[in-house]
């Protein structure tokens, strides 16, 4: 590794946008770049565990947030033509037919390629998400650590 660095801010939590972020991250990693993905606000939902996680000490609002937001990559909606959940199903079928890697596989692949995935702790606080509710292997940090990586980067995306 080490020919370059790419930083990607994943702010959006829609299936298609998260998909684009992981395609780019995997491509860059395959080209030997170091990649940092910084997940903030709705983007954090892509990192949620699919199962219900019971945690104590949440406020009512935080519990409501956790209940209303999608848990993990399989439950994300589309940014266009969502049609109350029918859109993502259709999109996934079309993608399967075109042999596009499913989002879950892209996430696994990114991890195997050493893509650094960072969860924004400020957003976690706002949305009431705890580490227990997110997948393993994440780093937890804030804007300074993202900016430190971005300083070393020659491509920076906000998705």
């Amino acid at each position: 590794m080490g020919t370059g660095r790419k930083t990607i801010i994943v702010f959006s939590g829609e299936f298609d946008k998260v998909m684009a972020a992981f395609v780019i991250a995997n491509g860059a990693a395959a080209m030997d770049d170091e990649v940092t993905m910084f997940f903030t606000f709705w983007g954090l939902n892509a990192l949620r565990r699919p199962e219900k996680v019971t945690v104590n000490g949440k406020t009512l609002v935080q519990r409501a947030f956790a209940w209303m937001m999608p848990r993990g990559p399989e439950r994300l909606s589309l940014s266009q033509m969502n049609f109350a959940g029918a859109g993502p199903k259709l999109m996934k079928r079309v993608m399967r037919q075109a042999n596009v890697m499913p989002l879950q596989e892209l996430i696994t692949e990114a991890r195997e390629q050493g893509v650094k995935m960072v969860a924004c702790t400020m957003s976690m606080d706002v949305m009431g998400l705890l580490k227990e509710e997110l997948i393993d292997g994440l780093e937890y940090a804030g804007v300074a650590s993202y900016l430190a990586d971005a300083d070393q980067s020659n491509v920076n995306l906000f998705i």
Partner: peptide
């Protein structure tokens, strides 16, 4: 064969 972007590049790597 049969894989779409970024499959071929991942396979090459």
């Amino acid at each position: 064969r049969g894989t779409s972007c970024p499959g071929p590049i991942l396979a090459a790597k």
